[in-house]
Design a protein around this nucleic acid. Structure first.
Length: 199
DNA sequence: CTCTCGATGCGCT
DNA sequence: GCGCATCGAGAGA
């Protein structure tokens, strides 16, 4: 399967977000392919977006989003979770897209082990149905911050199978206190896996 | 299913 | 010090 090219990311963020649905997220983990079908994302639109980490400008944490598109922005939050974004648009935009949920494809048993490190067995549906969960399942942490999604050896996106408009829905973004006024969350209605029971 | 709450560490005002 | 782009446990319906 072919990787998405650099130009894929170098477009308006909302356009890229919609286009990310159905693509395959691939993580090479000690020689093994772990992968999933992207079914939920959220767009973060730069310094003017009150919900974005870029809202205070190019701070050290948000800096990757101000760099070249097609690189990863990984951040650590709530003292214990990591979340994966891909950087979009041109250098200086401060924009990115949070990957919120994938359907596991390859390496399901490894993902299960990663997720069971503490706690009880995890059903396949709950393996990767949330940004913190999929990062844990795919062993994504700060080492992958700024990773090159086009040429890098550890993390990338493949064409997958784009989903048609009839399968796509939008909503407000999840877990925010500011910036809930725009439908910047995109998800696949028919997905096996949902990061939000309400939708 | 729903809701609430605590864990836990860091970025930023 | 405050507030998180989160998650899981526990309680209730």
């Amino acid at each position: 399967m072919e990787r998405l090219p650099r130009a894929f990311y170098d477009r308006p963020t909302l356009e890229v977000a919609r286009d990310l649905l159905g693509r395959t997220l691939v993580r090479m983990c000690s020689g093994q392919r772990l992968s999933g079908r992207i079914v939920e994302v959220e767009a973060y639109l730069g310094p003017t977006d009150p919900a974005s980490h870029a809202r205070h400008g190019e701070t050290s944490r948000a800096a990757p989003m101000f760099g070249e598109p097609s690189y990863a922005y990984v951040y650590f939050t709530y003292g214990m979770y990591h979340c994966l974004n891909c950087v979009t648009e041109g250098r200086g935009s401060g924009t990115g897209i949070l990957i919120r949920a994938v359907e596991p494809i390859e390496g399901i048993e490894t993902m299960r082990q990663m997720r069971e490190v503490r706690g009880k067995p995890v059903s396949e549906k709950r393996l990767t149905n949330g940004p913190g969960k999929l990062a844990q399942a795919l062993s994504i942490d700060l080492e992958l911050n700024r990773a090159d999604l086009v040429e890098g050896p550890d993390l990338w996106l493949e064409n997958g199978e784009p989903v048609g408009s009839s399968e796509v829905a939008t909503s407000a973004r999840i877990g925010l206190t500011h910036g809930r006024d725009h439908p910047h969350r995109f998800y696949v209605k028919t997905a096996n896996v949902s990061a939000h029971p309400k939708y």
